[in-house]
């Protein structure tokens, strides 16, 4: 049962603070939707309304066309950023309990818990108490609790934080499978490289408002090919010269590589020429759209300037 998640002009106020301001977006089934934003942007407030933990002051949240309710809660899995488990409870018992809260039968929940633990190479944990597990192990258990009832919508808030690279790969694979299986995946993060790597669509919020939304490709294209990356051998002094002249802004640099954002009116060829004129050997030169982190930074500061 593929279900799109749709937010329409959702607003939430806490006292005097406007935490979420007329946020609208749609997350489609079979796609990975990235919800981005700096800390305090309103991501968690938005997610809590999607998960029907809090209710919007105005606007609507629907899953598969149905307003969110205790019934839609059963078709969602939510992995909060701040997460935990009952420490004194055994892993299996805990998963069965959380599965039952999602409406599963006890037997069904047990089967699912065992299957998912096997999947993560963790079958031996079923009878262990949570407090005996390492932090990384606990995170896997939490992930199992999020997906074991086969939800139509999976909400993952910073799922990679605290995972070692190996486990991060496993998680990434699983998320890709959920997408293949037609689930709607909402992925909240402020880690741009992960979003760039994983997401199909994204929505950037800051100060409670949507600043930027669309598919990853659309968003990139909107910014044009105004960024140059180069690798070279030789004196890097020409970079400082270009920056002093206001022709470029250096996004990143190391001894033999740099990524530059071209100022308006600067041609990419000017950069290449400057490099060659300085006597450096240029091994690679590429013109492309700015990295998401840069788009993110620029959009947020632009929005702040407009506000």
């Amino acid at each position: 049962m593929p279900s799109a998640l749709r937010l329409d002009s959702v607003t939430k106020r806490y006292g005097q603070t406007l935490a979420v301001d007329r946020v609208s977006f749609t997350a489609e089934p079979g796609r990975l939707f990235g919800l981005l934003g700096p800390n305090g942007a309103g991501k968690t407030s938005t997610i809590r309304m999607i998960a029907h933990i809090t209710a919007p002051d105005s606007g609507t949240v629907t899953l598969g066309g149905e307003p969110v309710s205790p019934a839609t809660q059963r078709r969602m899995g939510y992995l909060p950023e701040e997460r935990g488990l009952y420490r004194k409870m055994k892993v299996g018992e805990q998963l069965v309990y959380l599965g039952q809260l999602k409406g599963m039968g006890a037997h069904e929940a047990e089967t699912a818990a065992r299957r998912w633990l096997d999947r993560f190479g963790a079958s031996g944990w079923y009878g262990k108490k949570v407090e005996e597990l390492s932090k990384g192990m606990q995170q896997k258990v939490q992930f199992v609790a999020t997906v074991m009832h086969d939800p139509a919508l999976v909400i993952l808030d910073e799922p990679f934080s605290g995972l070692d690279p190996l486990n991060a790969d496993v998680l990434q694979e699983t998320v890709a499978e959920l997408r293949e299986a037609g689930r709607t995946v909402l992925f909240a993060s402020h880690r741009m490289e992960q979003v760039e790597q994983l997401c199909d669509d994204l929505c950037l919020i800051a100060g409670g408002r949507v600043i930027l939304a669309g598919s990853l490709r659309e968003v990139r294209q909107r910014f044009g090919r105004d960024t140059a990356s180069l690798e070279f051998d030789g004196d890097a002094g020409f970079l400082d010269g270009l920056e002093r002249a206001g022709a470029v802004r250096i996004l990143s640099r190391s001894a033999h590589a740099a990524t530059l954002r071209l100022a308006e009116g600067t041609d990419a060829r000017d950069v290449l020429r400057a490099a060659l004129d300085s006597g450096a050997d240029v091994d690679r030169f590429e013109v492309h759209t700015p990295p998401l982190a840069e788009i993110f930074r620029e959009s947020v500061s632009g929005a702040a300037a407009r506000a």
Partner: peptide, 16 residues
């Protein structure tokens, strides 16, 4: 305990 454990947010995404 539920609050410091942060389990509460998962639970209230399932029950009122």
């Amino acid at each position: 305990e539920e609050k410091t454990n942060r389990i509460v947010e998962v639970v209230v995404s399932s029950v009122r």
